[in-house]
């Protein structure tokens, strides 16, 4: 399998506190990867580094063999799209306007969107099931609806890699289930590589091909859900006792506190 991302000896610190400490791993093309770990483990920071929003202090990130540092913002935005945890704007844009912002890297800096751009945006909204509120203002939407709009914006960038930062934080179980299905479908139909910072082990277990478990900025464990979600590893990383079972229908591990 092809490696779409190669991360080598990556380090990053805020001031004196080291957030990411010399980590290396590869991500396979068209896989779904979960980044897990306790609060403050460095999950969001790692997403910021992988998406190029923050520059690492040391180490390198290769996308399809190209060094992330040498890729211009615009080019990078065509390969990597990020769904932020939340998004707010002091002035209300409509959902469609927000999704059209995803076309930014494809439009000339001074130009307007073409018919194609609008079609792509509408198509993305249909895929994430939010076209019905295309003309509504983004700040009138609920957390779940807003997130579908942000996901559509990321898809409008037509990326190879989609990154999500704690996408389930503001969602109820119905929306979590819908999001899971959407992500699985995007991965299966479009071959999209998905990297997801998650705090819920059970969600990770049910959608991820590969899990990277972080603690204090280092990788504690990495592998398939079966390999990583085991009682000794989870108890060690999260510092609490857990109970782990197998889902009788899918065979995936799930845990109980």
């Amino acid at each position: 399998m092809n490696k779409i991302l190669e991360i080598k000896q990556l380090s990053f610190s805020y001031g004196k506190s080291i957030v990411i400490d010399d980590i290396s791993f590869d991500i396979r093309d068209a896989s779904i990867v979960g980044i897990l770990g306790p609060n403050g483990a460095g999950k969001s920071t790692l997403i910021n580094l992988l998406s190029g929003t923050n520059a690492p202090d040391a180490g390198s990130i290769l996308i399809d063999g190209d060094d992330l540092k040498s890729i211009p913002y615009r080019t990078l935005a065509k390969r990597v799209a990020v769904v932020p945890q939340m998004s707010s704007s002091p002035f209300a844009f409509t959902s469609l306007e927000i999704v059209l912002m995803g076309r930014t890297p494809y439009i000339s800096p001074y130009g307007f969107e073409s018919k194609d751009d609008i079609d792509i945006a509408i198509d993305a909204m249909k895929k994430t099931d939010c076209y019905e509120f295309a003309s509504r203002n983004i700040d009138e939407l609920s957390g779940g609806e807003r997130q579908r709009v942000l996901l559509a914006r990321a898809l409008a960038q037509n990326p190879r890699i989609l990154m999500l930062d704690e996408p389930t934080t503001f969602l109820d179980i119905k929306h979590i289930s819908a999001l899971k299905n959407t992500l699985l479908k995007l991965n299966h139909d479009g071959g999209l590589t998905i990297i997801c910072a998650l705090h819920d082990l059970n969600i990770a277990s049910s959608i991820c091909d590969h899990i990277i478990l972080l603690k204090d900025g280092s990788i504690e464990a990495a592998g398939t859900p079966d390999e990583v979600i085991s009682r000794p590893i989870i108890e060690r990383v999260f510092d609490t006792s857990v109970h782990i079972e197998k889902d009788p229908t899918t065979g995936q591990p799930y845990f109980l506190i």
Binding site: N48, S51, G52, T53, Y73, R74, T75, L76, A77, K78, V80, A81, V82, P84, S87, S88, S89, P90, F91, F93, E97, M101, G102, T104, P105, I107, P109, Y110, G111, F112, Q157
Partner: peptide, 23 residues
């Protein structure tokens, strides 16, 4: 006026604007 389209992205967070390809 020429920068107007990119100014829309100023209203988002810095990280979002960056990941949409804006310096």
């Amino acid at each position: 006026t020429l920068l107007a389209r990119r100014m829309n992205l100023l209203l988002l967070s810095d990280n979002e604007a960056k990941s949409l390809g804006i310096n």
